[in-house]
Design a protein around this nucleic acid. Structure first.
Lengths: 235, 235
DNA sequence: AGCTGCTATTTGTCTGACCATATCGTCGAA
DNA sequence: TTCGACGATATGGTCAGACAAATAGCAGCT
C-alpha cells in the first residue's frame, strides 16, 4: 500500500494533477483526456469531484468539453484573463495614498451623435455631462468624463457631485443589468492633458464603460489614467 | 397552486432569481442574504443546487461569502471582467481578413538590465531577440517584440521563424506554468511606428506578457497594436 | 476591560445514485 | 449511395446525506 498517510483527495488535487499532466505535455494540445468515470476510478473519488475539477479547467480555457465527444486539451490556449476592476477610491487607497476628488465640469447637454448611436438613444435626449478628477496624494490619477442619461436616471440632475464622484453615487442609486468595457490607448488632449498634467498628444491608457439597465442605456464613461498606468493580472 | 407547469428548477434559475433580487435592490449593497438551507427550502431544491448558484455569484464578484457570517451583496461591485486572449492568427482570421506574417529582425543578445531584472535572470544571459509583424489583409495589425531565454529554451536558437511567428512555435514546443499579462498605452517610436505605419509618438495599445515554466522565465513579449485597436468585453 | 476558549452556525466539499441531454456511430431503408 | 432513426456513451446536472472547516458571538475567567 502506498497512500499510507493518504490525505483526503479533493477536487483541487484532481485539478492540479490534471493541469500538471497537461502543462507537462503528458496530454499535449488537442489530446483526448480519459472520461470522468475512468478518472474517478483512478483517483478514487466520486465522479462529481472529477467533474468539478474538469469544469473549472473548462472555465479557465484549458480544456474543451463536449458531450459524447469527451474532453480535449485546447489546441491553442485561448486563455481567458481576469481583470478585477475596483472603484477608483479603493484602488488609490490600496496604494497607501490619500484619495482626493475634484469636479471639473457639470452641464446638461443633448446627446452628441456618436454617443446617441453608441447608446441607442433617441436624437436630442438630454444627458448630464460631467468631468472630474481623481487624485492620489498630490498627483492626478484618473480623469473621468461621464454622460448620464436623464431619461433613465432623472434623479441625477438633482445631484451636484461636488464632493464625491458620480460613480459612487451611481453604484448606490442605480442598478445595472449589462455592462460593456473596453480598453484602448488614446492621445491626451485639451482638458484631459491639462487635468493629468500631461503633454498634448501623450499616450493615455483609457477605459470606456457603458452600462444598461433593462435594455436602456444608463451611463457611458471614459476613464483616462495618468502617465505610465497599466493593469496587470497573473495566473 | 402556481407552478402547475413547473419546469424543473436548476441552479441557473436559482442564480438568475438571486441576481434579479440583487440588481433590483431587493437585497441592496451590503445586505445579508438568507442562508443556503433557507433558500433551498424556498426554491424547493437541494442545498447543493443553491450552493452552486451562490458560488458562481461569488466567482463573478457579485456577492461575498464567509463561513458562519453568511453571504452578503458586495458593497462596491468589484466586478471581474474576463478578456479572452486568442492567437493573433485566429484573431485576424475571425475578422475575415487574410493573415500575413513577416519577420523583421532576429538576433541573439545579452539580456538588457531592465529585462534581466524583470525576468529575474542572471546578468549576461543569452536571449533570442525577435521582431515581427502580423498583417491583416494589407494593413499592419500587430508588432511583436519578443525575447526568448536560450537558457530555458535552447531549441529556439535552431528555429529561424521566417515563415511563422514565435508564438505559434512556443505554444507547440514549450509548456508554461505561470503568466503575467499587462495592458498599457505607449508611444509609437522607431521600428514600431514604422512597422505599423504610424506617426512617431502616436498612442499605441500595448500588451506585455511574461511566461514562466517552473520558476524560470521562458519568454517576454511586447505586442503593439495598430491605430485604434481596443479590446472589449460584455457581461 | 480584556483575554481565552467553547459552541452553534454557516459555508465548503465529498459521496453515490440517478436522470437529462447531446451527439457519434451504426445500421437499415429508400 | 444517401439519408434518417436509434442506441450507446460521455458529459451535465440534481439530490439527500454526511462530515469538515471557519468563525461570530458568547460565557467565563483574570
Amino acid at each position: 500500500m502506498n497512500d499510507v498517510q493518504a490525505d483526503k483527495v479533493s477536487f483541487r488535487d484532481v485539478k492540479a494533477e490534471l493541469l500538471r499532466r497537461i502543462t507537462e505535455r503528458e496530454w499535449g494540445p488537442g489530446a483526448l483526456l480519459p472520461g470522468e468515470v475512468e478518472l474517478a476510478a483512478e483517483f478514487q473519488v466520486a465522479r462529481a469531484t472529477v467533474n468539478r475539477a474538469m469544469r473549472e479547467l473548462t472555465e479557465e480555457g484549458i480544456v474543451e468539453r463536449r458531450r459524447k465527444a469527451g474532453t480535449r486539451v485546447r489546441p491553442s490556449p485561448l486563455r481567458a484573463a481576469r481583470f478585477e476592476i475596483p472603484l477608483v477610491r479603493a484602488e488609490i487607497e490600496a496604494t497607501g495614498a490619500a484619495y482626493g476628488y475634484r469636479l471639473l465640469e457639470r452641464r446638461v447637454v443633448v446627446a452628441p451623435d456618436w454617443l446617441a448611436a453608441r447608446l441607442a438613444l433617441a436624437a436630442g435626449v438630454r444627458l448630464l455631462y460631467l468631468r472630474c478628477l481623481h487624485v492620489a496624494g498630490a498627483a492626478p490619477y484618473q480623469h473621468e468624463e461621464r454622460w448620464i442619461s436623464l431619461a433613465a436616471q432623472p434623479a441625477a440632475e438633482a445631484e451636484d457631485f461636488a464632493e464625491s464622484g458620480p460613480n459612487e453615487w451611481l453604484i448606490r442609486a442605480v442598478p445595472f443589468s449589462e455592462v460593456e468595457i473596453s480598453f484602448l490607448a488614446t492621445a491626451a488632449e485639451g482638458g484631459v492633458a491639462w487635468a493629468l498634467a500631461m503633454a498634448e498628444g501623450e499616450p493615455v491608457f483609457t477605459v470606456e464603460r457603458t452600462t444598461w439597465w433593462q435594455g436602456q442605456a444608463v451611463t457611458h464613461v471614459r476613464l483616462s489614467f495618468g502617465r505610465g498606468h497599466r493593469i496587470t493580472t497573473r495566473y
